[in-house]
Amino acid sequence: MTSTPIKVGLIGGGGIASAHIKGYQAYADKIGVTAVADADAETAKRRAEELGATAYTDFNELIADADIDAVDICLPHHLHKDAIVAAAKAGKHILCEKPLCLSPDEAREVQAAVTENGVTLMSAHNQLFMPAVAKAKELLEAGTIGTVYEVRTTDSFFNNFDPANMGWRASAKTSGGGELIDTGYHPSYLMLHLAGGSPVEATALLSTHRLRFMEGEDSAQVLIRFDNGVVGHLVTSWAYTPATVTERFSAVGELGSLHSDGTSLTYNLRSGESETFDFEPVDTIPAEIGHFADCLINNTRPLHTEKEGIEVLGMILAAYEGAKNKSIAPVLQV
């Protein structure tokens, strides 16, 4: 695809769609929303008016009828698979919010639909667009800290959810679990990105410290082993803000270590060499939209496709299985 601007159908007009819309506004010369679907007619109408787009209440009708090149899926978790498969079968490229889908069977169906129809799918893993993450990946691939032994990631905050405002996230059937498959998806894909291998086994301790009206956990600690020998430790929670000394991510290797609070990055080597990098903040979801546009225009691979989306899902499902059975569980292989 070389023509611009790319025409997108926005599927789901709820909360996260607002952040995506900022991205389309920032990169209007490359990509824009021309159709919007939401099951709530008022939401669809409001978003369509906001964007100068056509409103639909059924995403299948949008995919079939709208003049679009791609879709941006911002639906509740349990609806992702159906929208991905419908879009892929219609030859539309796909940007999909996390999680990619919810089960091994859904993952296989997604992979088959994308592969058989030759479309590009980008997993909307926005934290990969943090400058500190990009620099860390560069240093790790350059061998700055040598062979990597351990990666740690953290994404925790005090969440003010209550039974009146949590909506579909309170139900394991529609969310896919609890906090781990929601906010916990972020430190999972970040760990995958930094570890540089494929996940092979995982286990977890799940807790419900505070949000007891949820069906799923509000906190999780996860251990993951990768095929290159890296071991990952992930902490994530809606129950609490972590201690101020807690890193956003870190890696330890044979020559030293690196760590980041998300805005700066420092590496320290056993040789005594050390360097700190400070970064200007980046609005990561608009950056993600710009990357999606560039990938479609230039026919290049997104940072994370359905491959990585399925690997992250596999990490989380194995963690859930390990927690349930008090075991170390194998990661889904599709």
Rank of each mutant, 00 (worst) to 15 (best):
E138W: 11
P104R: 03
F213N: 11
Y240K: 02
M130G: 09
L180P: 03
S156A: 15
H193S: 08
I145V: 12
H209Q: 06
E201V: 08
D155G: 04
S198I: 11
K137G: 12
Q127V: 11
Q221A: 10
N165L: 02
V119M: 11
V110H: 03
M214S: 02
N160K: 09
F226L: 06
G197Y: 04
T144N: 09
A220M: 01
A132F: 10
Y185P: 07
F161P: 09
D227R: 13
H233S: 03
F158K: 15
G216T: 07
F213D: 15
P131R: 15
D182R: 15
A136K: 14
A195M: 02
Y240M: 02
S171K: 14
G167R: 12
E179C: 05
E179A: 12
A220R: 01
T236V: 00
D105K: 00
G177T: 04
W168C: 03
E217D: 09
C101G: 08
S171A: 06
W168V: 14
V148S: 01
H186L: 10
L102V: 03
L205V: 07
D218W: 05
Y149T: 15
P131Y: 13
W168A: 11
A170R: 10
D218T: 05
E179I: 03
W168N: 11
V230S: 01
Y149F: 15
G167C: 05
L205P: 01
T183W: 05
A134R: 14
L180R: 03
E215F: 10
S207P: 01
C101E: 13
E215N: 13
E109P: 08
L211V: 10
E116Q: 13
L100V: 04
L211G: 05
G232W: 03
F213S: 13
E179T: 04
F158E: 14
W238M: 03
L205G: 08
T236D: 01
A107K: 01
